[in-house]
Amino acid sequence: MGRLLFLAAIAGGGYALYRKFIADAETLTARSEQKRAEQKNGANGTLVQDPVSGEYRVKQAD
């Protein structure tokens, strides 16, 4: 019974690491696609509107 719980814990940890890896890979892909699109159209960054002041600023990297 102890072995089964140990293997279940190992499998759960492996699955959690796998999901984290996939999420990080998707984030990295989205960033690289955004940079590629900015280079393609000659942009210097993406503008976002500040909801408080209404001013537009260049989006900061998270």
Rank of each mutant, 00 (worst) to 15 (best):
M1H: 14
M1G: 15
G2H: 07
R3Y: 11
R3W: 15
R3Q: 15
R3D: 12
L4Y: 14
L4I: 15
L5N: 15
L5M: 11
L7V: 01
L7A: 04
L7F: 04
A8W: 09
A8F: 07
A9C: 01
A9Y: 08
A9E: 04
I10W: 03
I10D: 03
I10A: 04
A11E: 06
A11Y: 09
A11C: 05
G12S: 02
G12R: 01
G12V: 00
G12F: 01
G13P: 00
G13T: 03
G13F: 06
G13K: 04
G13R: 06
G14Q: 13
G14F: 14
G14E: 13
Y15A: 10
Y15Q: 15
A16E: 08
A16P: 15
A16L: 10
L17M: 06
Y18F: 09
Y18A: 07
Y18E: 12
R19D: 14
R19I: 06
K20R: 10
K20G: 11
K20S: 15
K20I: 10
K20T: 10
F21A: 11
I22G: 03
I22D: 09
A23R: 12
D24G: 12
D24K: 09
D24L: 15
D24M: 13
D24S: 15
D24T: 09
A25P: 05
E26W: 13
T27R: 11
T27Q: 09
T27V: 12
L28S: 10
L28H: 11
T29P: 08
T29R: 11
T29I: 13
A30K: 08
A30Q: 06
R31N: 15
S32F: 07
S32D: 08
S32Q: 14
S32G: 08
E33P: 00
Q34E: 14
Q34R: 13
K35I: 00
R36W: 00
A37N: 00
E38I: 03
Q39K: 12
K40F: 03
K40M: 07
K40P: 01
K40R: 13
G42D: 03
G42N: 01
A43Y: 09
A43I: 07
N44W: 11
N44R: 10
N44E: 08
G45M: 04
G45R: 02
G45H: 00
T46V: 06
T46E: 03
L47E: 02
L47P: 02
L47Y: 07
L47S: 05
V48R: 05
V48S: 06
Q49L: 10
Q49G: 07
Q49F: 07
Q49K: 13
D50P: 01
D50S: 05
D50W: 06
D50L: 05
P51R: 00
P51G: 00
P51Q: 01
V52G: 00
S53I: 10
S53R: 01
G54K: 04
G54R: 06
E55T: 14
E55K: 13
E55S: 14
E55G: 12
Y56V: 11
Y56E: 12
Y56A: 13
Y56I: 15
V58A: 07
V58F: 04
K59E: 02
Q60D: 14
Q60P: 10
A61D: 00
A61F: 03
A61S: 02
A61N: 01
